[in-house]
């Protein structure tokens, strides 16, 4: 399958494009806050940041409704926000507060909102596959044209469960979309050192149509998502998207404080931070080029998003800690 090579998003209104840009910006700024807050010891756990991959979650989720399902990775804040998760309760969750979306029991690696179809970030690499297949099976039996999306990384592509998932979803023509976000690093190891062949090719023997895209190109990723979601809604079965991207931050924030050596050159990182690589800057440039935003508008949007993040942090900081008794409930219905 080829990606529709429209190099514009003519079918989207200017307002819509600005909204999508704003969502990417919101993810970026939330993550930047979490990065600095980690160093301050502001919250209890570790965070895996989505910076540099925002275009993927935002473009895919733009094609989904609250009735559709997603399962995510340990790098899941971006998917949570993109699918419509509430930023305040996400932030409070990461701060371990009672008002967190999981009442402080899940933390960063497990932000979930099932009412909005967010089956959650997942601490097990490849752990979202089964959940997404199950939701896709339910969707196919419900016959209401709902779809299920499994976001996973290049690391998870090496888990055996992916083969099981591809086989079952293709066999049963499930309304499922595999989105492999190849950010080039499996934890602290370059994926090329631990992976044979091309990941996208793994879907082909199962008869699953594949799309290989520049995941940092919002437009291309949006078009690929549109095609995959349309196939799923039309009961044409699964689609496999490999979105090439780059993990701008470490596997886990603040990792240099405990790693014995570095594992990549700063030159490599810098290359991906540049205007022609970073997904947010590229989309911003597209909006500039098409006169959809200008400097004034950009500044206003930045201020607006800054205040949303600030408010979420304030909400998290000022929220109460969980009631001690809550440690003992919710295990069994």
């Amino acid at each position: 399958m080829n990606v529709n090579k429209h190099n514009t998003l003519d079918n989207l209104s200017d307002e819509k494009l600005v909204e999508l840009y704003k969502k990417m910006l919101l993810i970026r700024k939330c993550e930047e806050h979490l990065s600095s807050a980690t160093k301050e010891g502001a919250f209890p756990g570790a965070v895996h940041l989505y910076i540099g991959q925002e275009a993927i979650a935002v473009s895919m989720c733009d094609h989904l409704t609250e009735d559709d399902w997603i399962s995510s990775t340990h790098r899941g804040h971006g998917h949570f926000i993109a699918k419509g998760g509430d930023v305040n309760t996400m932030m409070a969750e990461i701060y371990g507060k009672a008002t967190g979306i999981c009442n402080g029991k899940g933390g960063s690696m497990h932000v979930a909102d099932f009412k909005k179809g967010i089956m959650g970030a997942n601490g097990v690499v490849g752990g979202g596959m089964g959940l997404a297949i199950g939701a896709a099976l339910a969707a196919s039996m419900d016959k209401k044209n709902k779809v299920s999306v499994v976001f996973f990384g290049d690391g998870a592509a090496n888990q055996g469960v992916l083969m099981e998932a591809m086989n079952v979803s293709s066999l049963w023509k499930l309304p499922l979309i595999f989105v492999c976000e190849n950010n080039q690093y499996s934890e602290f190891t370059h994926t090329s050192e631990v992976t044979s062949g091309k990941i996208v090719d793994r879907a082909k023997p199962f008869g699953i149509p594949t799309l290989e895209v520049d995941g940092n190109n919002f437009i291309e990723m949006w078009q690929a998502s549109a095609q995959a979601v349309l196939r799923a809604r039309n009961n044409q079965g699964p689609t496999f998207i490999e979105a090439h991207t780059y993990r701008q931050r470490g596997h886990v924030e603040f990792e240099y404080s405990f790693l014995s050596r570095t594992y990549r050159d700063q030159d490599e990182v810098n290359k991906w931070l540049a205007n022609d690589k970073d997904p947010l800057l590229r989309f911003e440039q597209y909006l500039f080029d098409n006169s959809i935003i200008d400097n004034q508008k950009t500044e206003a949007l930045n201020n607006e998003v800054d205040s949303v993040v600030k408010e979420s942090v304030s909400f998290a900081v000022n929220s109460p800690l969980p009631d001690l008794s809550s440690a003992f409930n919710n295990m069994i219905a």
Partner: peptide, 11 residues
């Protein structure tokens, strides 16, 4: 795993 997803989705 799919039992979990299907159960969460109402089955």
């Amino acid at each position: 795993g799919m039992a979990v997803g299907a159960a969460a989705a109402g089955y």
